[in-house]
Design a protein around this nucleic acid. Sequence first.
DNA 1: GTGAAAGCGCTAACAG
DNA 2: CTGTTAGCGCTTTCAC
Lengths: 354, 354
Amino acid sequence: MTESSGDRSAVAPARPTLQEVAALAGVSRATVSRVVNGGSGVRAGVQAKVRQAVDALGYVPNPAARALMTRRHNAVAVVIAEPESRVFSDPFFARQLRGISRELASSAVQLVLLLVADTGDYAQVGSYLSAGHVDGVLIFSLHRDDPLPALVDRLGLAAVYGGRPGWADADSSALYVDADNIGGARTAVQHLRERGRRRIAVITGPLDQTSAVDRLRGYREAFPEADPRLLAESDFTAPGGRRAMQHLLARCPDLDAVFVCSDLMAAGALAALRESGRSVPEDVAVVGFDDLEAPELWGAPALSTVRQDIEGMGRLMARLLLTRLELSFAGRAEEAAAMRPVVTPARLVVRSSS
Amino acid sequence: MTESSGDRSAVAPARPTLQEVAALAGVSRATVSRVVNGGSGVRAGVQAKVRQAVDALGYVPNPAARALMTRRHNAVAVVIAEPESRVFSDPFFARQLRGISRELASSAVQLVLLLVADTGDYAQVGSYLSAGHVDGVLIFSLHRDDPLPALVDRLGLAAVYGGRPGWADADSSALYVDADNIGGARTAVQHLRERGRRRIAVITGPLDQTSAVDRLRGYREAFPEADPRLLAESDFTAPGGRRAMQHLLARCPDLDAVFVCSDLMAAGALAALRESGRSVPEDVAVVGFDDLEAPELWGAPALSTVRQDIEGMGRLMARLLLTRLELSFAGRAEEAAAMRPVVTPARLVVRSSS
DNA sequence: GTGAAAGCGCTAACAG
DNA sequence: CTGTTAGCGCTTTCAC
């Protein structure tokens, strides 16, 4: 009964184990383990023998067994707190994901993308994280009152946020990467004023997200006397931007500029302006935010926008998480806790729409 | 030394184990395990006690330990054999992924999206799969000579392909879900002929993919006498479609229709036609393929296209994989091997571009 | 330097 | 029905 387990090998050709490599190389399991994990403290000759056996057998360590022992998974999760439909239709996420993926690839850490169903229910994500499949998590597009941060905290999972979380005041230990939303927005609106625009509308993102709030704040700093009817809240999508623009035009037909807080919404706004027979920038100047340079934005007059280095922010998030993981695994908890958020610059790029 | 392990609890609050639950409930580990896994064969009273202990302690099973024992991971990988840039810019993948994700969600199986670096090197993906992190894999957008199928085969991983793999002849056991590309393309081109078009060009996808080859074949079946100069091979991207259209117009200025083998390319083609001063459908009729209904395709004349149920295909792929996994885990290998590929219908949707 | 032994947390036979 | 016993494949003290 001890040796009769070659049964399901029909379906999966029974991977070799450390044991078998050890037997073939004529050493102990411990030695093989050492070699496989870098080989420090093992004589060169023995190392060679072991490596040969590993290759001969095509041995690959079993990550489940390894994780059981080391409590590390070499995997991090990415959670985007938006329905998947948005995740895949907004190039912003794609770019950030690319940055993350590139950074992780260079560390042999696996990225696990956790998709959230349209209902916004986190049951799946929560249980995945609770199970402890991953060492840490990157969290995007957090809305106010999101339950995720509490969960992550309770689990003691290392986390880095994309965009400042709402509760992150100066003394919080939350780690995040954010663009200078306030500064970027302020510059954009100042630019419109300098161009002589006087009725500058704004289309914001959902105001339960700090990025949207901050960009609105920048607008207000640059244009404190703004008529409140010049403001429309939207949702960071192109159709949303179109609707918001339609509302603004209905309410304030005399507006002469609009600052749209994302390029995707700006694409929608441009469509609405075109449909209303207005020309850009003659009748209405437009400035976006993000600098997506996406094919979706073709054809329209080239969009002035506030550029942020999205892919770079992704890389940075990944790097921060990896560093924090490294530190806390090495037991250097204070250093890990001492890490600070990073705010990256956002600068205006003037093209033909303004 | 035996009991001094509450050390890194500073970083992660030491999850409770089966052992502790058992102790609290006053039963054995085996009993707790039974309850946690459905509880069949355990008296109701005992079950209640155990459940209570589980809740009290906030116990969550350790998946690494479980996988070590069961050899199941309750996770499947999705590999899209394209650089991530394309994965995120092509709504086709998003839709399919959504279908997959929905289907898996209802089975508590986790989806792990494996991103491929732009260089197209599979080192990362290969080692992830080799390590045996997942029970099966869904593979998309395979090109000829792709090394993945061989790897998957060697590992004995269950796989379902999105789109018929090139080597999948009738007797192969490869499982896939594909649309009726030939039929859809044939119908599209027949429609153009019936509308009186005589110089019908075609813009194909990369001809090392069966979907591209099949659509071209449908075109040829419906238009066998086509001038070879009416064919342009492209790459399933919008900019690619634009370039292809420009070439076609340069080569055959008298063309009066174009069948574009994907909506994304069609968006590019429409842009090129507009730029050349031609009107659609008066000068040139256009039919696409996919029916993306994406915001990217706004503004242009509504695109006639060949509709395929992309999300449904995704669901189907997931379902097939889950079934095959279930069967082979239950030891019903013949039934698993007897499963057949599925080809879903593709039908023409006529709008104003043709 | 290398090996022996102990277990990570769980499930699966097998007794009872 | 429930408990006991054996590991799954790996890392990691601790001796030698």
